[in-house]
Design a binder for these strands. Structure first.
Lengths: 270, 270
DNA sequence: GTCCTTGAAG
DNA sequence: CTTCAAGGAC
């Protein structure tokens, strides 16, 4: 088990942003990079560009047009087979073994605008997906597996994970029905929410800022949608580096032609 | 009447290619630049970018989505009012006075695939437009006006204006019904086809290469679709500079993200 | 191939 | 605001 740097980034089209990723990788030097919303088919993944960044191992689960996840790694990846946690098989989840860790990469549905599953099928899909994730990790908890879950969960769970708790309680991503479902998953696997283990609960932390805001930085109406969670079996490795081992690269949101998400990074101990 | 450099370029989206135009203008330094297929509404024309290129005078006739023509000039333009030569008012024609010349900028319809007006309304539209142009300049011939006509005529009139005369006789842009209609317009105003006045008739001359060709340069299946015509009253000014005063910038077709048309330039005498 | 529009999705 | 997908045009 060597130490390594794990990153998660909703890239919002990996083909369009391979050069942006290269820029960032040259600064952040992640060993294992989990991407969401790659928005391409497997064969369209720009593997060559990633090879030039130093990645040699890939696990891509894409589809045409929407969604899609991928892992690029400098360490070998062991394919564990797909569990198909997404009820609709929309290329929203993948898992691999890497350096003794069972790594799950998620792109949980955004869920549409209306936070009512009775009238919004997208929201119902999101909640159904969350239920399935909970059942899956509940069923596996007895094994005490070395799980790390990362990705764009599309939920900002805590008060200071959004710019205004009060104003967002009825906005999809921060409604009680979502944050409670996410908390049930967390408890099902006894996962540590790494960011909140390392950063005080009353400190604002965001990883996403809407494209729609005129000045994302000035308005700073962000949300923490991107997460890294560690199961008890890897809790120590995940938290070993302390506060300095964790970083959300907020500045990247201000780069040329950015994703609306910032990359989230954790140095994991050996 | 000062001498000036006149250019015509089908730019295939002026918003997308304003940087390309700036690159080219910095090399070619045209005084009056006639554009076709600007593909934007008047208020969307990137005037600021053109001001930075040194143009101070504009006459834009655009519409949403398709077609559209524009003139950017370093010399004052006098608006002559629109004649609406296009039967459908599709922003395919404009005219101005500049340095003693009545300048007409045309984007004649491509005409679709099938060269039969009975079954192809696009082709019928093209022929109808040509008829109207002929009637217009016939009616004005007696004035002996100082006319210069430029633009994308979407017709390659002569044998060596296409890569294969024989193979293109049934291809829209080089069919006899089109080349004859264009010749009637030419004769109606006794226009000089500047390129062919200066370049021998048996020399291949192209201004357009399809995007569809794998290697436009190697295949070199071009067509001369872009023209500069001078009426008798300005014939001497137009031809004063001789062969060196005329240039089609073929290389520009090979630049990054090019238009499928190359810019055509004529130095006009004072 | 490349562009524009529309509509869905975020 | 930004992405992708159709469909139409060239």
């Amino acid at each position: 088990m060597t130490a390594f740097t794990l990153a998660s980034w909703n890239i919002n089209s990996v083909r369009l942003r391979a050069p942006l990723v290269a820029d960032w990788v040259s600064q952040a030097d992640p060993d294992v990079l989990c991407l969401q919303e790659i928005k391409c088919q497997n064969e369209q993944f720009p593997e060559e560009a990633f090879r030039e960044m130093g990645f040699r191992h890939f696990h891509v689960r894409g589809q045409k047009g929407m969604h899609g996840v991928a892992i690029a790694s400098k360490f070998p990846l062991e394919d564990l087979g797909d569990e198909d946690l997404c009820p609709r098989a929309e290329a929203r989840h993948q898992r691999v073994m890497v350096e003794g860790i069972e790594l799950h990469n998620f792109y949980i549905p955004a869920g549409g605008d209306e936070p009512d599953p009775a009238i919004n099928p997208r929201f119902a899909h999101k909640l159904g997906f969350l239920d399935r994730i909970e059942a899956y990790f509940k069923a596996r908890a007895a094994e005490n597996p070395p799980l790390v879950l990362v990705g764009d969960f599309n939920i900002a769970p805590y008060e200071h994970d959004v710019w205004s708790h009060k104003q967002l309680l009825k906005v999809v991503s921060h409604t009680p029905v979502e944050t409670e479902a996410l908390e049930r998953i967390r408890q099902a696997g006894d996962f540590a929410d790494v960011a909140r283990e390392l950063i005080p609960m009353d400190e604002k932390v965001y990883s996403w800022w809407s494209y729609r805001a005129r000045d994302w930085k000035k308005a700073n109406r962000g949300r923490r949608l991107d997460h890294i969670w560690a199961a008890p079996a890897v809790r120590e490795r995940a938290l070993a580096g302390g506060r300095d081992a964790f970083r959300i690269w907020e500045d990247v949101r201000g780069w040329e032609k950015p994703s609306d998400h910032a990359p989230v990074v954790l140095r994991i101990g050996g």
